[in-house]
Amino acid sequence: MIALENIALRQGSFELSNLSLELASGEYGVLMGRSGCGKTTLLEAVCGLRNIAGGRIILGGRDVTQLPPAERGVGYVPQDRALFPTMLVREQLAFALVLRALGQSEISARVDELAELLGITKLLDRTPDKLSGGEAQRVALGRALAHRPSVLCLDEPLSALDEELHGEMCRLLDRVHRETGVTILHITHSPSEARRLAGGHFRLVDGNVTRDE
């Protein structure tokens, strides 16, 4: 689950305060808002990449407000995906597992499992510059899921894809959600994209989050 309690955020002249949001465990939450309204900032705060000026962040029942990003148990897929340019797809997927000092066999089993889930088995030995937009998105998703986080944060995961891939990626996200049971916070600026996705819909308007019923 994700619970944001009275979060206050400051970034230069930009400010958000008293912001609250609650997402049940295993829920698929879509947060909508115009460009520049602070969606990405909020997502970064959840991941621990940005200090918050006040309030509490609770992920999976744990208060993580003071924890570093590594210990929050989140998977983060930024808008530009940020695949590590020097690593093979296989190494990207294994990255979080290597850091956790897992055994070789365990790591390769998990990598294969993820590749299977995301349909990227054939891409494992490629470098990111040899991937198409949709493929890169899948790899970024796989990298974020590898360490079985309780929360997955997706920043505009569909915005860079062409219309044709939209539907495919929506189905994939749905499948990932069903098979892993991870709580997903998906942010988008596009209401039409939000309508295609199941789950709880939120709007960030003028610094307030409201839940669409």
């Binding site: 991941c47 590590f84 974020a144």
Partner: peptide
């Protein structure tokens, strides 16, 4: 930032 969320310091 991504590396930090994946478990790096």
């Amino acid at each position: 930032q991504v590396a930090l969320t994946l478990g790096c310091n």
